[in-house]
């Protein structure tokens, strides 16, 4: 049975396979060869492809002139900013390198890891701006914890004597068992003194020093071993570091307070 238009029942008059669709849009099929339902579509698509007519190309030379001018202007703009961009990039890179160098040098100087000569220069330069870094002079380095606030512990002299003194190889040379003796320090540095211990049962108190000393810059070191009960303090006025090396054998302590270190050198 066929409907009134002649097509078989159930058959889609506008059915279109992929190949025919492709040929229609690419213009590979003539209007007469197209499926009957698509002949009008083929004609419309062919009209779309028609070459341009005079009206569509009107004003072409004027438009081309404008476009060419825009091309030249854009090319000029592109050439100029590229050199500026390059110069700007170079400036940024140089600034970054300089900043990184300063940061690295400053870090090494603060850690005292620069070579001596460079460390001295860095110390001098940074000292001008109020930043204190090691000067690069060789100083005894002891990584042991510094007993700064040892708590005196009452004990007896016997127990104190039973504890022999041991000094680590890295420590400064042992001194005689006299808490009042302090080891000399490095060249140019000032010396801290530890007064003798006086009382075995007394807690650590600031030892009686020779009195106020003039303020000065330097390092105060206290090396030695406290043999008996008592305390050994290094006192001083001035700026610098105070080190205490040694071992407390008995009650008492060996302490060095930077703020109290005795500076005997010249200011």
């Amino acid at each position: 049975m066929t409907p009134g238009n002649g097509s078989p029942s159930g058959m889609d008059r506008f059915a279109l396979d992929a190949g025919t669709a492709e040929r229609l849009v690419t213009g590979a099929v003539d209007v007469g060869d197209a499926p009957p339902a698509y002949r009008a579509v083929a004609a419309a698509l062919q009209a779309l492809r028609e070459p341009p007519e005079s009206l569509e190309l009107a004003g072409g030379p004027f438009v081309a002139e404008r476009i060419a001018a825009t091309v030249v202007a854009a090319r000029t703009e592109r050439a100029a900013p590229s050199s500026r961009r390059f110069a700007s990039r170079v400036r940024v890179m140089v600034a970054a390198v300089v900043a990184c160098s300063f940061a690295l040098t400053g870090s090494l100087a603060a850690a005292g890891e620069l070579p001596d000569s460079a460390q001295r220069v860095a110390s001098a330069v940074l000292g001008q701006v109020g930043i204190s870094v090691p000067s690069g002079d060789h100083e005894p380095v002891d990584h042991r914890p510094v007993p700064t606030t040892a708590v005196p512990k009452p004990t007896t002299a016997a127990s104190a004597l039973s504890n022999p003194t041991t000094v680590s190889p890295s420590a400064p040379p042992p001194v005689p068992h006299d808490a009042s003796v302090t080891a000399p320090v490095g060249p140019g540095q000032e010396r801290g003194r530890t007064p003798p211990a006086r009382d075995s049962v007394q807690p650590a108190v600031p030892a009686d020093g020779p009195g106020p000393s003039p303020p000065g810059n330097g390092n105060g070191n206290a090396w030695g071993t406290t043999k008996a009960a008592g305390s050994a303090n290094g006192n001083g006025n001035g700026n610098g570091n105070a080190y205490a090396y040694g071992k407390t054998q008995a009650s008492g302590n060996a302490s060095a307070d930077p703020s109290l270190a005795l500076a005997t050198g010249s200011p």
Binding site: E53, L57, G60, A69, V72
Partner: peptide
């Protein structure tokens, strides 16, 4: 040539594409 700013070349490209773009 159009990339160098030649007007004739720009005109060739424009004649080729302008009608299609406008449609």
């Amino acid at each position: 040539a159009a990339q160098d700013g030649a007007q004739w070349a720009v005109g060739v490209l424009w004649n080729e594409l302008h009608p299609r773009l406008l449609r």
